[in-house]
Lab assay of single mutants.
Amino acid sequence: TKIIYHMDEEETPYLVKLPVAPERVTLADFKNVLSNRPVHAYKFFFKSMDQDFGVVKEEIFDDNAKLPCFNGRVVSWL
């Protein structure tokens, strides 16, 4: 699974690849690859589809939650 993530106000996003199927990747999986960053200091928002509003940034805080996936990749903002 490819996860593209944006940090603070930085213009260029980062990319990490996880050896987990897109439909199975969790917030804990993502946090594990960010071990060099203080993950407890961040809120995690993900590109998600809402039936009422369309594409939104959804906050996910449960480490066991599966991450929303679009075209085989996850897009996140920290």
Rank of each mutant, 00 (worst) to 15 (best):
F30H: 02
D62F: 06
M49C: 12
A65W: 01
N71I: 04
T12A: 12
Q51C: 07
T26H: 00
F70L: 09
T26G: 01
F61Y: 09
P38A: 11
L78Q: 02
F45M: 07
I4E: 15
E11K: 13
K43G: 00
L15N: 07
V56F: 15
N71S: 07
P22N: 05
V39M: 10
E59S: 03
T12V: 11
G54F: 05
D8N: 15
Y42I: 07
D62H: 08
C69G: 05
D62C: 15
E58G: 04
Y5Q: 01
R24Y: 08
F44S: 01
K57W: 15
M49F: 12
N64V: 00
E9F: 08
D50N: 14
F46Y: 06
D29W: 07
F45A: 03
P13V: 11
E23D: 09
Y5P: 00
A41N: 12
K43E: 03
D52V: 09
V33L: 09
N36H: 09
V75A: 05
A65C: 08
M49I: 06
K57G: 06
N32H: 15
P22Y: 03
H6N: 03
L15E: 15
L18G: 01
P22E: 03
I60M: 04
Y42R: 05
G54M: 13
R73F: 14
D29P: 02
T26A: 04
L67A: 08
R24A: 13
I60K: 01
W77P: 00
F30Y: 00
H40Q: 13
F30C: 00
R73M: 13
Y42A: 08
N64G: 07
S76E: 00
F53C: 14
G54Y: 03
G72N: 04
W77R: 03
L78A: 04
L15K: 09
H6S: 05
G72R: 03
L67E: 00
W77S: 01
L34H: 01
M7K: 05
P13R: 06
G54C: 15
I4D: 00
L67H: 03
L18K: 03
D63E: 14
E23H: 12
S35A: 11
S76N: 01
G72A: 03
V39R: 06
I4N: 00
V25H: 01
Y5F: 12
P19D: 14
S76P: 05
E59M: 05
L15T: 15
N64Q: 09
F44Q: 02
Y5I: 13
R73T: 07
V25T: 02
H40D: 13
F61S: 13
P13M: 11
R73H: 14
N71R: 09
F44D: 02
F61I: 08
L34C: 06
A28K: 11
T26K: 03
T12D: 14
K57A: 13
P68C: 00
A41T: 10
V56S: 15
V25Q: 02
E10P: 02
V56C: 14
V16L: 10
F45H: 03
K66G: 06
V20A: 00
F45I: 06
S76I: 02
P13S: 13
D63C: 09
H40S: 10
V16H: 00
K66R: 11
E58Q: 15
A28S: 10
L34Y: 03
E11P: 13
D62P: 00
P38C: 07
F30D: 04
F53N: 15
Q51G: 14
K17C: 13
V25D: 02
N71P: 02
G72P: 02
V16S: 05
K66Q: 11
A65L: 01
D62Q: 09
S48A: 11
P13W: 14
F30A: 01
K66V: 11
V33W: 08
E58T: 15
T26W: 02
K47G: 07
F46T: 04
R24L: 09
E23Q: 07
E59R: 12
E23R: 06
K47H: 06
V39F: 11
P22W: 02
V39S: 07
V16C: 07
Y5W: 05
Y5E: 05
K57H: 12
H40K: 11
E10W: 05
M49W: 07
F61A: 11
D62S: 09
F61H: 07
S48I: 12
E59L: 07
V39Q: 10
K47C: 13
N71Y: 04
L18M: 04
K17E: 14
P19R: 08
F44L: 01
N71C: 06
V39N: 05
K47E: 11
E23G: 11
V74L: 01
T26Y: 03
S48P: 02
I3D: 07
F44M: 07
V20N: 02
D63G: 07
P38N: 14
V16A: 12
V16T: 04
V74A: 09
R37C: 11
T26N: 00
R24V: 10
A28N: 10
Y42K: 01
P13F: 09
P68R: 02
V75L: 12
F46G: 02
T12L: 11
L67I: 02
E59H: 10
V56G: 13
L67M: 01
Y5T: 00
V16Y: 03
D29N: 02
K66N: 09
K17L: 14
D29F: 02
N64Y: 07
V74F: 09
L27W: 03
L15V: 15
F53G: 15
F44K: 02
P19W: 08
V56H: 15
Q51I: 09
A21P: 13
A28C: 07
P22A: 05
K47W: 09
V25N: 04
E9H: 11
V33T: 08
V55N: 08
L18A: 10
E9G: 13
R24C: 12
N36C: 10
N64T: 13
L15I: 14
V20Y: 05
K57C: 15
I3G: 00
N32G: 13
L15C: 14
Q51R: 11
P38D: 12
K66L: 12
D63S: 08
F44A: 02
I4M: 06
V20H: 03
I4C: 06
K17S: 14
N36M: 10
F61Q: 14
D29V: 04
R73I: 13
D63L: 03
L18P: 00
F70W: 09
F45L: 09
H6M: 05
F45Q: 04
R37L: 11
N36S: 11
Q51H: 12
E10Q: 09
Y14E: 08
E11L: 09
S48Y: 12
P22I: 04
K2C: 11
T26L: 03
H40M: 10
R73W: 15
D29Q: 05
T12F: 12
P68E: 01
A21G: 09
F46L: 01
I3W: 00
P19V: 03
V20D: 01
P13E: 15
K31N: 03
N64M: 03
H40I: 06
L34F: 05
K17V: 14
V56E: 15
Y14H: 14
R24D: 14
R24M: 11
A41R: 11
L27K: 01
Y5G: 03
P38Y: 12
A41I: 06
E11V: 11
L15H: 15
F70I: 08
G72T: 00
L34G: 01
F53Q: 15
V16W: 03
S48G: 08
R24N: 10
V55T: 08
A65N: 03
V33K: 12
L18T: 08
L27I: 01
V39Y: 06
I3V: 08
Y42F: 07
P68S: 03
V20G: 02
E10A: 10
V56I: 13
A21N: 12
A28M: 11
V75M: 11
Y14S: 11
F46V: 03
T12M: 13
P19L: 07
F30V: 00
D50Y: 07
H6I: 04
T1P: 00
M7C: 11
Y42T: 06
Y14D: 00
V56Q: 13
S48W: 04
N71A: 10
P13L: 05
V75P: 00
H6K: 09
A28I: 15
K43A: 06
F44V: 01
W77A: 05
